[in-house]
């Protein structure tokens, strides 16, 4: 198919490239120079004396620990999602009962619940459960709020498995367990990787639940560390931006090596 170039969109895309590129350049440039250099040269200048001091300083300010907390939360959320969503999607797709239909509707409606709307009662529930300022108290709601999207993604994938395959396994007298592990799970690999990426991103970038459910440094995650850094030392822009770079580094590495899986996981963000 031959089409003439779309000049308007081409021009727009160049403007957009500038709008995306400039902040990223300022961010990287700022983190590689001293605070005094940054304030005297201005944000747009190329750094004269390169230094990694901002990064090392962030680590000595506890960012290593926040990093570790975020990692724990992320791994736990992914583990919960992987444990409960595949059986759920399997039941929704294969069970013909009314209850599972109702359950599917419940999760569809669940997509509509904004996390912002439940932070007050969540604070109540988590405090009553004695989990305030505890990573478990962050993990549980974060995992719960990734369930609707994950369920939707995985049921979509499992619906594509053809009924003939189930029948073939039924001929062999396979139990639901065997069907699940030998047929459904292997054929849902793409969906599984998508929900892993989606829930991991939700957990890694999560801000609202840690903000209202934790307090002390020992249970602080990296997004909250960034926020506190900004409110307390907002004037140290290079240090702050170095922390921002550190927080996105793991996702960036995944982006380089598994771009496809990451983009698919990201697309889950919108609730499809």
């Amino acid at each position: 198919m031959k089409r003439r170039p779309n000049y308007l969109a081409g021009l727009g895309s160049l403007v957009w490239l500038f709008l995306i590129g400039l902040p990223l350049y300022v961010m990287l440039a700022a983190t590689l120079q001293d605070r005094s250099d940054y304030s005297s040269n201005g944000p747009l200048a190329f750094p004269k004396h390169l230094t990694l001091h901002n990064y090392t300083q962030d680590f000595s300010n506890g960012f290593g620990h926040f990093f570790l907390n975020t990692l724990v939360v992320t791994l736990a959320v992914v583990a919960i999602v992987l444990l409960v969503v595949p059986p759920l999607a399997y039941a929704i797709v294969r069970s013909q009962g009314r209850i599972t239909t109702g359950i599917f509707r419940l999760f569809l409606l669940g997509l509509a619940i904004p996390a912002q709307a439940v932070i007050v009662p969540m604070f109540y529930v988590i405090s009553k459960a004695g989990l305030y300022d505890n990573l478990i108290g962050v993990i549980l709601p974060t995992a719960a709020f990734s369930l609707p999207v994950c369920a939707l993604i995985l049921t979509g994938v499992m619906r594509e498995i053809s009924p003939e395959l189930y029948e073939a396994m039924a001929m062999d007298g396979a139990t639901p367990w065997r069907v699940f592990f030998q047929l459904v799970v292997p054929l849902s690999k793409s969906g599984l990787s998508t929900i892993v990426v989606f829930s991991a991103l939700q957990a890694w970038n999560g801000f609202l639940f840690p903000l209202v459910l934790t307090q002390s440094d020992s249970s602080k995650v990296i997004t909250l560390g960034l926020f506190n850094f900004q409110t307390e030392h907002g004037i140290d822009i290079p240090g702050l931006l170095a922390a921002v770079v550190l927080s996105m580094l793991p996702i960036f590495i995944v982006y380089l090596f598994a771009r496809r899986a990451l983009v698919q996981g990201l697309m889950g963000v919108g609730g499809k």
Partner: peptide, 10 residues
């Protein structure tokens, strides 16, 4: 004859 999962899975 196809064995179907019960709602317990969900």
């Amino acid at each position: 004859a196809v064995a179907r999962p019960g709602f317990a899975w969900a």
